[in-house]
Design a protein around this nucleic acid. Sequence first.
DNA 1: AGGCTAGTGTCAGCCACTGACAGTTGACAA
DNA 2: TTGTCAACTGTCAGTGGCTGACACTAGCCT
Lengths: 234, 234
Amino acid sequence: MRTEQRAADPAKPQAETSGDISGEPSRPGLRERKKQRTRDALLRAALELFTTKGYEETTVDEIAEAVDVSQRTFFRYFTNKQETAFAVQEMVEQRFVETLRERPADETPFVALRGAVIDAWDAMGRSIEEVVPVELHMRTYQMIESTPSLLAAHLRRSIEMEEEIARVIAEREGLDLDTDPRPRVVVAAFSGVMRVTGRLWGAGEDSSVESIRAITESYLDHLGPALAENWRTE
Amino acid sequence: MRTEQRAADPAKPQAETSGDISGEPSRPGLRERKKQRTRDALLRAALELFTTKGYEETTVDEIAEAVDVSQRTFFRYFTNKQETAFAVQEMVEQRFVETLRERPADETPFVALRGAVIDAWDAMGRSIEEVVPVELHMRTYQMIESTPSLLAAHLRRSIEMEEEIARVIAEREGLDLDTDPRPRVVVAAFSGVMRVTGRLWGAGEDSSVESIRAITESYLDHLGPALAENWRTE
DNA sequence: AGGCTAGTGTCAGCCACTGACAGTTGACAA
DNA sequence: TTGTCAACTGTCAGTGGCTGACACTAGCCT
């Protein structure tokens, strides 16, 4: 009943306390800012440690110590050790889904999916920096792919997202997920390919955003033809 | 550095000790038989407990106690708690790969894959009984699908098998996995669909072998058409 | 029968994680 | 400014997965 993951979010930014007169996104109070700083510090420290000495080799105690808080405090910000590894990933995925929703309605599901990933990769380069250096995020991604327990968690998160994506697709096409298997099927095939590209990228040399973008495009373009009948007599 | 999974196999049936004169698969010594019995007992006890009171709620101590051995002994047979949950699954997958290898060379990769799963489901019904009741295995499968940490592990194991399958396909077609992405792509798409069916089956009512066989066939037949362009004007 | 060694139990200890409780410290009203 | 309340944190103790070390028991073999 130990390891692995739970749920909940004890660190959610609960209701603003400061008097919020102007409509502006007023700067949160000292308390909030302090919390945010602690969380960011824990996250960065964790990722830095994970990517240098390895995930399994990094102790929660070490992470806490690096930020000079108690271990108990760490667990109040992150439900478990794994969660830190996926914190940034989480953001990227969020963005992907949003992008997908905004795709023109006349696009084929597959085309829309393809377009959304490409966009997501591009946007990522720009908007993550606020939390952690992109380069650190890249290293993190590769670490996830090469750490068995994290890979497992990564995959599970993936299929949860698959379900969400399938819902979006079904909505776009005006279909019923419960009776029409096609949305789930495309998404499954699509995601399967995405995973392969992710793995390849993680294993390869070039860890740039451009690199994964290129692999993604190329592989997705192979999907249709690959399911066709005769490979040998192409 | 705790939970999750490791590797190794401390319980492998190492070299026969008894004098093996006849060519027959002579009955192993008392020592071996005893070991086998302990392992089977642990496995059955574990699955029984997992499926009744839940995986996370089951303690290794409880499993060990149910078989009346020490906790330490449990860990000499299984590298970790998770491994027991997948012990039977492991056999099924082994069989699937073997079946795939024996598929007629003139079949399309996709057709061969399709045929192999169907065969595997059929064979399963017959040959697992030796270790655990099929019904218990079914319950176990559903438990895996509904237990987050196990689902994660299950997915990871799946992609490891994907790689193996991709190798088989590449071999069949005489292709080079390193330069030709198509084997991995079909396998990825295929496996993606397989996972969806597995999940559906686990969530549904009918937990029979026939049921999953049917779902599998139906869904795989949807894959080709689903990737085609226009769903709305079908 | 007796020695060898695989298999087991016991013990101690690490680490992820959690509940309980008490001490600090921002936020806010008087 | 000060006092109160609640949020946040640290400390402590405990559970459960998992491992190394060591001593002991019991099949196996000569």
